[in-house]
């Protein structure tokens, strides 16, 4: 029950924050960017200095404080992309298309960060950078899929076509996520402990939490900025031509 409540409040706060950043003055975005920086620095301090080393993995485990938040942000962005894609097909509107584009790009960014950090973490833990861990493998497949999604958006000139087709592709990729996950797990299973704040020391929780909020602030800044860029482009594309032909050039 508290879990559901927490989720609803979280979604409302993040959604409201995003709305405010998109609609509000540019200084708000700058403010959140500064906040993100402050949080990142203090998060780094908590993660590198304050939190104790892990009993089994030692200092290597500290990479979790940035790896896990990056994965969360990627997951949030991908979910947002799916919701926007579905919503667009039901009721087309340019803000949904712009948000879909922004979330795919931001998701690709955080996913790539999470993936690289994950494989760096893998090197001392498993002895290899790439151990075909199901979660990282699924993520790698999805990153390629979303790279294809963004390439598609680049290769279509007609704005309306781009919006509809990328919504279709966005839905198809999102539907593939559970299928990829299951197939990769069956294909090769490697046990992996779940990283979540409830299983670790209070100092570790604080480090993870600070970094998570830092990444969330970054996520909001990136997403709103990218959204505004996409909106500006479609607005330019969809503005009706002048009533009278311009002088011949």
């Amino acid at each position: 029950m508290t879990h559901a409540l927490f989720t609803v409040v979280g979604v409302a706060v993040v959604g409201g924050g995003l709305y405010a950043l998109v609609r509000g003055p540019a200084s708000w975005r700058a403010g959140v960017a500064v906040l993100a920086l402050v949080l990142l620095v203090s998060g780094a301090w908590y993660g590198l200095v304050q939190a104790p080393p892990d009993r089994e993995m030692g200092n290597v485990q500290r990479i979790m404080y940035v790896h896990v938040p990056a994965q969360w942000m990627a997951l949030m962005a991908v979910t947002l992309n799916f919701l926007c894609s579905v919503a667009y097909l039901f009721r087309p509107s340019w803000p949904k298309d712009a948000l879909a584009e922004a979330s795919a790009e931001v998701g690709l960014f955080f996913g790539a960060v999470g993936l690289v950090l994950g494989s760096i973490w893998g090197k001392p833990t498993w002895g290899v950078y790439w151990s075909w861990d199901p979660r990282l493998t699924s993520e790698a497949i999805l990153l390629v899929a979303y790279a294809g999604y963004l390439a598609l958006r680049r290769f279509i000139d007609d704005a309306e076509r781009r919006a509809v087709w990328s919504a279709v592709v966005g839905i198809i990729i999102a539907v593939d996520i559970p299928i990829i996950w299951f197939s990769v797990r069956w294909w090769r299973s490697l046990h992996q402990m779940q990283s979540s704040p409830s299983t670790v020391d209070p100092d570790m929780v604080r480090a993870l939490r600070w970094n998570a909020f830092a990444f969330l602030a970054l996520w909001l800044v990136f997403l709103s900025t990218r959204y505004l860029i996409a909106r500006a482009r479609t607005e330019r594309e969809m503005a009706p031509p002048p009533m009278v032909a311009e002088a011949a050039t």
């Binding site: 294809g148 598609l152 290769f155 592709v169 197939s183």
Partner: peptide, 23 residues
């Protein structure tokens, strides 16, 4: 159907299709 009407269709089709088909 999508990639046949986009630019760079010969690159786009495998780029879209291959990750999807991995399962």
């Amino acid at each position: 159907a999508i990639s046949s009407q986009a630019r760079a269709r010969d690159v786009l089709l495998p780029l879209l299709l291959f990750p999807l088909l991995i399962p």
